[in-house]
Amino acid sequence: MWRHVVSNALTLAIVILFLVGGVIVWGTSQYKEGGPLAEAICLQVPSGASMGSVSADLAEQGAVSNARIFRLGADYSEKASQLKAGSFLIEAGASMEQIVDVVTRGGRNTCGTEVVFRVGVTRKQVQVRELDPATNRYVEQARFEPQVEPVDPVYTAALDASDTLIRFAVAEGVTSWTIVEALNNIDFLSGEIAAVPSEGSLAPDSYEISKGQDRNEILADMAARQERILAQAWAERADDVEVETPQEALILASIIEKETAVAEERGQVASVFTNRLKRGMRLQTDPTVIYGITKGEGILGRGLRRSELRAETPWNTYVIPALPPTPIANPGRASIEAALNPESTDLLFFVADGTGGHAFARTLDEHNANVAKWRKIEAERNAN
Rank of each mutant, 00 (worst) to 15 (best):
D240P: 04
S53Y: 04
S344T: 13
A161H: 12
A235G: 05
V126L: 05
G35Y: 13
G107L: 06
G191L: 11
Y207E: 06
L183H: 10
E192R: 14
L304M: 05
F117K: 01
G280R: 10
L37C: 01
K258C: 04
A59Y: 12
F88H: 06
I377M: 05
Q232G: 05
I218T: 09
L323V: 08
P36L: 10
V148G: 00
N109M: 06
A231T: 14
K84P: 07
M222C: 03
F168L: 07
A67F: 01
G21A: 11
F350Q: 06
K79L: 15
A220R: 15
L364R: 14
A49H: 08
A63P: 00
Q226N: 11
V196L: 02
T28E: 09
E265D: 09
I328W: 05
L89Q: 12
S307A: 14
G303Y: 01
Q44M: 12
R228T: 14
V64S: 08
T294V: 08
R266F: 01
E337A: 02
V289W: 10
R215E: 02
A339E: 01
E308L: 07
A223W: 02
L19R: 00
A238G: 15
T317I: 08
I14Q: 01
V102Y: 05
S198G: 06
D75I: 11
V241S: 09
R306K: 14
L304T: 04
P314H: 07
K211V: 12
E244G: 11
E297N: 14
R105H: 11
G112P: 03
R137N: 15
G296P: 10
A49M: 05
V6Y: 04
N136D: 15
D152E: 13
A157V: 09
D286H: 11
L17W: 09
S201G: 00
L364K: 11
D152C: 07
V23A: 14
E236C: 05
R108W: 09
P133H: 10
V54A: 11
H367P: 00
M222L: 13
P197H: 04
L323Y: 03
N109H: 13
V6I: 14
F360Q: 00
R105K: 15
A220N: 11
E257A: 12
Q61H: 12
A49N: 12
E248G: 08
S254Y: 08
V126Q: 02
N316S: 04
V64C: 06
Y31S: 08
L83H: 07
R71G: 00
G298A: 06
P150R: 08
T363K: 11
Q61R: 12
I320N: 03
